[in-house]
Computed example of a mutant assay.
Amino acid sequence: MAADLTSFHACLRSSSRILALVGAGLSASSGLPTFRGAGGLWRNHDAMDLATPDAFAADPSLVWQFYSARRAAALRASPNRAHYALAELARRNPNFLTLTQNVDGLSLRANHPSSQLLHLHGSLFALKCTSFYCDYSDNNNTTHPLTPALADPDSHSFIPAADLPHCPKCHTGLLRPGVVWFGEPLPWSVVHTADSFFEQGKVDLILVIGTSGSVYPAAGYVDRVRAQNGKVAIFNIDVDATDSDEERLLDAPDSERMQWIFKGDAAEWIPKALEPLIGKIELPGDSD
């Protein structure tokens, strides 16, 4: 593994345009469960069934309690070293862009420049009005609870619509979380900005962090880097490499390597992997 890291560092130093695709594994060391492992009360529900427009229309009380619990968990969590390492790389390299599938807000709290951070799936802390005639949105609302009725995410008692979050602009429409639900398209502005990054020049390296990188549409970005003859580095606890991937890893000379796989905690790997460009990462409050 030390040899792998050495050859990766050589690639990193020679890479100008770098893309990161990150998923739930990035925040695992911050104590956040994955979407499908929300735990507690929500073990009795299929989380995927709570993340659709139809679910919200049928039972906004249940959906809002689920998302209120996720907001509370994200607010309790703190960014880890991987969040800070990516933020530091963004500050040092204007040609670095992070595409995050996470909605927890931890990258922004690690001071990742917002201009170099695209939220593919929206944010738990974005709100928008569901009224067809209202265009209200709030991209960073960290108030918790949003209404007194949502103070106890484990109560699971029915909450009347009148006691759920309502739009402060039109006063009639229910607010909903500004996340991308199943069956909804990715935000157009995010897709356009990502496309523009590819159009501006070859992406030399993509870092696939805390995600399989095999689920579309996000996996399409990995394919596009490979199509440009760019290189891929995967950092994940669960790595699913194909036989051809393994062959390339074992047989290719360092100078011809097209892919690296680092299995383990992203919070440990990412600061180590990026150290040649960003130096040592310290968390706020770390002492010598």
Score class of each variant (00 low, 15 high):
residue 1 M to A: 14
residue 8 F to P: 02
residue 21 L to E: 08
residue 21 L to P: 06
residue 23 G to A: 09
residue 24 A to F: 08
residue 26 L to C: 11
residue 29 S to K: 01
residue 31 G to N: 08
residue 34 T to C: 03
residue 35 F to Y: 14
residue 37 G to A: 15
residue 43 R to F: 05
residue 47 A to I: 07
residue 53 P to H: 10
residue 55 A to G: 01
residue 61 S to Q: 04
residue 63 V to E: 03
residue 65 Q to P: 00
residue 65 Q to S: 12
residue 66 F to N: 05
residue 68 S to N: 12
residue 68 S to D: 12
residue 68 S to I: 05
residue 73 A to E: 09
residue 78 S to D: 00
residue 80 N to P: 11
residue 82 A to D: 02
residue 82 A to W: 00
residue 86 L to C: 03
residue 91 R to L: 03
residue 95 N to T: 14
residue 98 T to A: 02
residue 113 P to F: 10
residue 114 S to D: 12
residue 115 S to Q: 13
residue 116 Q to P: 13
residue 118 L to Y: 08
residue 119 H to M: 12
residue 121 H to L: 01
residue 124 L to I: 08
residue 125 F to C: 07
residue 129 C to N: 03
residue 130 T to W: 05
residue 130 T to M: 12
residue 141 N to C: 15
residue 142 T to M: 11
residue 144 H to D: 13
residue 144 H to M: 10
residue 145 P to A: 02
residue 147 T to G: 02
residue 148 P to R: 04
residue 149 A to I: 09
residue 149 A to V: 14
residue 150 L to Y: 08
residue 151 A to Q: 12
residue 151 A to T: 13
residue 157 S to P: 00
residue 159 I to V: 15
residue 165 P to L: 05
residue 171 H to Y: 03
residue 172 T to W: 04
residue 173 G to K: 08
residue 173 G to H: 09
residue 174 L to A: 06
residue 176 R to A: 15
residue 176 R to G: 02
residue 177 P to T: 12
residue 178 G to M: 10
residue 179 V to Q: 03
residue 180 V to N: 00
residue 183 G to V: 12
residue 188 W to R: 11
residue 190 V to G: 04
residue 193 T to N: 07
residue 199 E to D: 11
residue 201 G to I: 11
residue 202 K to A: 14
residue 203 V to F: 01
residue 208 V to W: 04
residue 211 T to Q: 06
residue 212 S to C: 07
residue 215 V to R: 05
residue 225 V to Q: 06
residue 226 R to T: 15
residue 229 N to T: 12
residue 230 G to Y: 04
residue 231 K to W: 05
residue 231 K to Q: 13
residue 238 D to W: 05
residue 243 D to P: 10
residue 252 A to E: 13
residue 252 A to V: 04
residue 254 D to P: 15
residue 260 W to T: 06
residue 264 G to I: 11
residue 264 G to S: 02
residue 268 E to M: 10
residue 278 I to A: 04
residue 278 I to W: 03
residue 280 K to F: 10
residue 283 L to S: 01
residue 284 P to R: 00
